[in-house]
């Protein structure tokens, strides 16, 4: 399990999990779940385009996640945000289908992009992931207070001169950055599950904003480590365990939150 060829796996998974936990905290608070799914999924045609053009796949991924942010925010101005997200996503995937049809040997790579290839990470793969993750971590920490206030109430934030529209785009940008670097290594599914599951549990367990964010990163690390260990033990794909554990974290968080609330109600009435 800790064999030398797996060292990279543990390192990359740790970096991605910590970042996804921190950024995911705001995904959950702001209700950006659909975008958190659509942005990583919409980036994967970028990899296909890059392989067609023979450039570094990271460029393709970053370009397509940028297109995703533009699509979601620009279409969202004129209509409902979830429609903007859905249509941007299908358009990007449609382009993906076009690129795939142009290059024929891609089905294995598609599986890897969707569900991750975490057990075959090279040292070279780590560098871009680490750099981009540090950037998104720094941006999220820097914007912590405006993002938090905006999540509580966009209007209160505006009264503190935090513009709602720009905050939205900025956060989508952070999300896009985080996911596009992680996708080629850990896959769309893994990133998405980590931005939803652990933060949902963390917000239920503590009332402190900073504490919840750190707890979210911690739970995210636990999820990923447990998933890799289970995957190695049982020989099943990592994505299965991350998806399952992420959903479990969400479910337990919800149940806990509702239990606490009902207990308080009973205490008040009784």
């Amino acid at each position: 399990m800790f064999a030398s060829f797996l060292v990279n796996t543990w390192i990359v998974a740790t970096i991605v999990a910590a970042t996804a936990g921190v950024v995911g905290f705001f995904v959950v608070l702001r209700g950006n779940s659909f975008a958190a799914h659509a942005l990583p999924l919409g980036t994967f045609p970028g990899a296909a385009a890059a392989s067609l053009l023979g450039v570094n796949p990271l460029f393709g991924l970053l370009t397509f996640s940028g297109l995703g942010v533009i699509g979601i925010s620009q279409l969202g101005k004129a209509g409902r945000p979830e429609i903007a997200t859905a249509l941007s996503l299908v358009m990007l995937l449609g382009l993906g289908a076009l690129f795939l049809s142009m290059s024929n040997e891609y089905s294995q790579a598609t599986y890897a992009l969707l569900f991750g290839e975490v057990l075959g990470v090279s040292s070279l793969d780590i560098v871009p992931v680490a750099v981009v993750s540090v950037v998104s971590l720094a941006l999220t920490t820097l914007l912590f207070r405006p993002l938090l206030l905006n999540a509580v109430s966009p209007e209160l934030a505006e009264a503190r001169s935090v513009p709602a529209g720009r905050t939205d785009i900025l956060f989508l940008g952070i999300l896009a950055l985080t996911t596009s670097a992680a996708v080629p290594v850990v896959g769309v599914l893994l990133v998405f599950s980590l931005t939803i599951g652990p933060p949902s549990a963390a917000r239920a367990l503590t009332n402190r904003p900073v504490g919840a964010m750190l707890l979210s990163a911690g739970l995210s690390l636990l999820t990923v480590w447990a998933s890799i260990a289970l995957a190695l033990l049982l020989g099943w794909p990592v994505g299965f365990f991350v998806g399952g554990l992420g959903a479990l974290a969400y479910g337990l968080g919800r149940v806990w939150m509702e239990w606490v609330r009902s207990r308080r109600c009973r205490a008040l009435s009784g």
């Binding site: 209700g31 979830e82 569900f115 794909p237 994505g239 399952g244 959903a247 919800r254």
Partner: peptide
């Protein structure tokens, strides 16, 4: 919250998908 619940189910479903495709 509804979108989060959707996301949770989606994550689990995609995980299952990963296993079954594998």
């Amino acid at each position: 919250e509804r979108d989060l619940a959707t996301g949770g189910v989606l994550g689990a479903g995609l995980g299952l998908s990963a296993l079954l495709l594998y």
